[in-house]
């Protein structure tokens, strides 16, 4: 976050506080990424242990959210930040909310994969899930990367990839819906797969949010709810 000059306050103490928050958010992002990755692996490889591990580790994510939230509130109360400092704190509060929700989706995948494994059900659609999962993982990684580097271009381009994820998700859920109607014996398995696909799709949405916050943080403009064409023409740096 060099562009924000976080270390240039006259108050060294304030510099340290902001640096600490920044580090914790990056750590939380790393942890959430790992949770998603493990949750997906547990699902694809039907690894109950790994699934349970993801489930239990969710409390770490929650703990970080509470901790960072608390530090942000302290800064708002004691330092009354303005301009880019204010935007940073507001952004952090929002980013960690989305990260926590992503953590919940990963936890869900972990829990479902443990259940699927333990009941010994055949699991179909692994190829499709893997494909969707890879798209989502790389999108989340790039969103967090754009946040860490305050890279507006990368944030906008990453956000645009949510369309691919939605397309994949929709075609997979059509397959699942058809299958559900034709094969009532496997309802339980198919519903769990549907929930996992839905979890992945939601992670994509949360990643879009993170990208939008990056633009707000750097440019001071809220780009939620404006068209992609307008965002591109206003914010993408011209080649």
């Amino acid at each position: 976050m060099d562009k924000l000059h976080l270390d240039q306050h006259i108050s060294q103490q304030f510099n340290n506080e902001l640096e600490d928050i920044r580090n914790k958010v990056l750590a939380m992002g790393g942890l959430v990424e790992q949770q998603v990755s493990k949750g997906l692996t547990a699902l694809l490889e039907l690894d109950a242990d790994l699934g349970n591990e993801v489930s239990t580790a969710d409390f770490e994510v929650n703990k970080l959210e509470v901790e960072i939230d608390e530090e942000c509130i302290q800064i708002l109360a004691r330092r009354q930040p303005a301009a880019s400092d204010l935007r940073l704190i507001v952004t952090v509060i929002k980013v960690i909310t989305d990260l926590e929700r992503i953590g919940d989706e990963a936890e869900k995948m972990g829990r479902f994969s443990a259940e699927l494994t333990e009941t010994g059900q055949v699991v179909n659609y692994r190829k499709e899930l893997r494909h969707l999962g890879e798209l989502v993982k790389s999108m989340l990684r790039d969103a967090l990367d754009a946040f860490a580097r305050l890279d507006v271009d990368a944030a906008i381009k990453t956000a645009a990839r949510d369309n691919d994820i939605n397309t994949e998700y929709e075609s997979l859920s059509r397959l699942l819906a058809t299958h559900l109607m034709e094969d009532p014996r496997n309802v339980s398995m198919l519903l769990k797969i549907t929930w996992c696909a839905r979890a992945l799709e939601r992670i994509g949405d949360h990643s879009v949010n993170i990208c939008e916050y990056v633009v707000y943080l750097v440019k001071g403009r809220d780009i939620r709810h404006i068209s992609f064409d307008q965002i591109q023409s206003e914010f993408l740096s011209k080649p």
Partner: peptide, 17 residues
């Protein structure tokens, strides 16, 4: 106070050097 245009303004209101 949320998004000043000039760097000097930003530095001043955020207590930067």
């Amino acid at each position: 106070f949320t998004n000043p245009s000039h760097e000097l303004t930003e530095n001043y209101i955020t207590g930067r050097f």
